[in-house]
Design a protein around this nucleic acid. Structure first.
Lengths: 245, 245
DNA sequence: CGTACCATTGAACCGTTTCAACCGGGGTGG
DNA sequence: CCACCCCGGTTGAAACGGTTCAATGGTACG
């Protein structure tokens, strides 16, 4: 689910006193399906939630009493096998919605990668709200369909791509979510640890490190810091990423 | 998406002349969100589609002009990498809906594993119908959420499970979709080829064959034919499948 | 300035793949 | 009618990509 994939918002101006007036992701979030009055009513049922780095929002299997909208930061979603093997199923960025499930349990653990802020809604209130606003339902379906498409791409990555291909794909994916400055070379921010990347790509941390070094050695990318890099050769990286068809 | 996971239908009796009266999957399909009159109106916009084994319904990247409901048979969904590596993203069984996407291109190739029958609807008619029937929208969301949950389980399988674990998980998954006879031992039908299984599990055909032989040798399963097996030790297989948490 | 933690690098190992041979059932044609 | 072939599946042996184990490096923080 990339920023560029999201439908452009049909935003209407909000009065300054409106509780969502200052929301940094108002034009991205599920909420943008609502008009100002609906939004105000909805917002009243939500509360702010701040998470420190590493802090958990919820655990896989917990009662899913709330849904969330990310307003700032980065989070990771993950599932565990009984013996501790972990699969990171995705990362959530500002504007992303957490709560697409029919189950009454959280389908995965959600933890903050960096300090994060969320808008939290009781699920019962949220469901009632969706019930009352059909265009909200449509928006929710759109979120689910977009996530599904991303999940299927990840299936191809995990099932059929080699280590370099996985890493190249990941860097390009992160670049798409990183704010670019016109005229500047392509940049990617990887706010998560190597461990998180490894568990997302179905690799070990050592392999991520090694293949990243290989990309550096091949002058395809250059690290500017541990969490930031420049893509010197986007076309070359794209070729390595082994995109489909 | 398992049979047992699907919400139980709120079925209303249909007149014998109703076009959906004989539909074998009426209680499973997205259509079950509709009342008889709505259903009749909807059905009029759909046509039957019969596929021979191996025949393609659509190709990844094709214009997505239609949506489908499977009424009989089995199909496989798959995505290709440029060099021919294939990932099977799922199998579709009677009652399953094909068409959860926002893109105007088919997100994957769909081919018949065995002779299959589908109910085919022009996407524009379908969308208009959904627009006019909010409970249909909800049903569609439910389908997407269920598929998403299955896809995330498959991410764990592909990212973190070993070959035996993948095969054990797959057999149990197929057993859940196979009609069981009370009192009889657990059975699983694998209607697809070893190649399809391999491409679904992110393995090679030889590995599938070898690990299946290992399960036979360990007396966990017994093949009754190339496409059918008995699970002698469901608990043992479950343990091998390395389910989460 | 020391320590702790994450990341990187190196070397040996191992699970899955690759390559190759073989098996067996179903269909075809001599 | 049966020999042959074709094709999907199985089995074996060697190769390889990624993991595992171990040591080193680097940086943030007390």
């Amino acid at each position: 689910m990339y920023l560029s994939d999201r439908p452009v918002a049909d935003m209407q101006p909000l009065a300054c006193s409106h509780p969502c007036a200052g929301c940094p992701v108002r034009d991205l979030a599920v909420c943008n399906a609502l008009n100002p009055d609906e939004l105000a009513a909805f917002r009243r049922s939500g509360t702010d939630k701040l998470l420190a780095p590493g802090e958990a929002l919820c655990w896989e299997g917990d009662a899913a009493g709330h849904v969330f909208t990310v307003t700032s930061g980065v989070l990771r979603m993950s599932k565990l096998l009984h013996d501790g093997r972990r699969q990171v199923t995705g990362f959530a960025f500002p504007g992303d919605f957490l709560g697409v499930t029919l189950e009454d349990e959280h389908p995965f653990t959600v933890e903050a990668v960096a300090e994060s802020r969320l808008c939290r809604f009781p699920r019962v209130r949220f469901d009632a709200f969706v019930e009352a606003h059909p265009h909200m339902e449509r928006r929710l379906y759109a979120v689910a369909a977009t996530e599904l498409s991303a999940a299927r791409d990840q299936l191809v990555l995990l099932g059929r791509k080699t280590a370099v291909e996985r890493l190249a794909s990941f860097i390009l994916q992160m670049a798409r979510r990183t704010r670019q400055h016109p005229g500047d070379p392509l940049r990617a921010t990887l706010p998560m640890s190597r461990m998180d990347i490894a568990d997302y790509l179905g690799l070990r941390i050592e392999t991520v490190s090694r293949e990243l070094s290989a990309l550096k050695r091949a002058r395809l990318v250059r690290m500017t810091s541990i969490h930031d890099l420049i893509v010197h050769d986007p076309a070359g990286l794209e070729a390595l990423a082994a995109v489909d068809r």
